[in-house]
Design a protein around this nucleic acid. Structure first.
Lengths: 122, 122
DNA sequence: CAGTATCCTTTACGATACTG
DNA sequence: CAGTATCGTAAAGGATACTG
């Protein structure tokens, strides 16, 4: 079994699996990887695609994804400058794992909503 | 395509897919679902398995998983009382989606660590 | 044993303004 | 266009003490 549990507090901070998961399970990382599914997008396009992300948070999340090797950042000198983001092979691997989860969430959300309602009336 | 992006701020809060994802991508939910893979566990056993989760946070996360229908909570009257948690069929579906991600994280963490180092020296 | 209650810190995120 | 800077809020999580 993968050693992700039964860890001391010190070990938990160092647990490599948790370190990976913590950077792909944020509110925006999943959506960003999905947004890049069909090819590279520029910063502004990515912002419009996400719709309700702020510029600061978008930058933060893209930097994190770039740092971990899921996306590349390519600058085209301007003016105006253009910066393009694209999935790496590793990013496409992550996409392949996350997309089924998102599709499943889309299929099951009404069941889950019913479960919530049933729980809340108690 | 699934409508999880290009949403207004109001729509985003109501987006059912995001509502599902937000409750399974926390720091502990993935680990809890994995911990229940091989069968029911009692509160104390679950706490020991996770290792470094506090009682309060464990309770919170279990309540959330129960509310969404991933986990059942069964009380055996005592004293001492015993409370057993187990995955539902929906919980096992979620497990089937999350486990590949965790296994993959275990396989790729050294690549990702190298990517981080390379990024940080710049 | 399996929680609650209380308090506190950290992290993520949001809003807005400014800039090469 | 693609950021950075600054400020503020909210949610998650941690520590500790107490209880049926």
């Amino acid at each position: 079994m993968l050693q992700v549990t039964a860890l001391s507090k010190q070990d938990a901070e160092l647990c490599p699996v948790r370190q990976v998961l913590s950077k792909v399970t944020g509110k925006w990382q999943v959506l960003l990887v999905l947004a890049l599914e069909d090819g590279a997008l520029r910063f502004g396009a990515l912002k419009r695609t996400l719709g309700d992300i702020t510029q600061r948070v978008l930058t933060e999340n893209l930097r994190s994804l770039e740092r971990d090797g899921y996306v590349t950042r390519t600058v085209y000198a301007g003016p105006p400058v253009a910066v393009s983001y694209a999935l790496t092979p590793l990013g496409f691997q992550l996409l392949a794992l996350l997309k089924p989860l998102v599709i499943w969430a889309g299929e099951k959300h009404s069941d889950i909503a019913k479960s919530r309602e049933a729980y809340d009336v108690i």
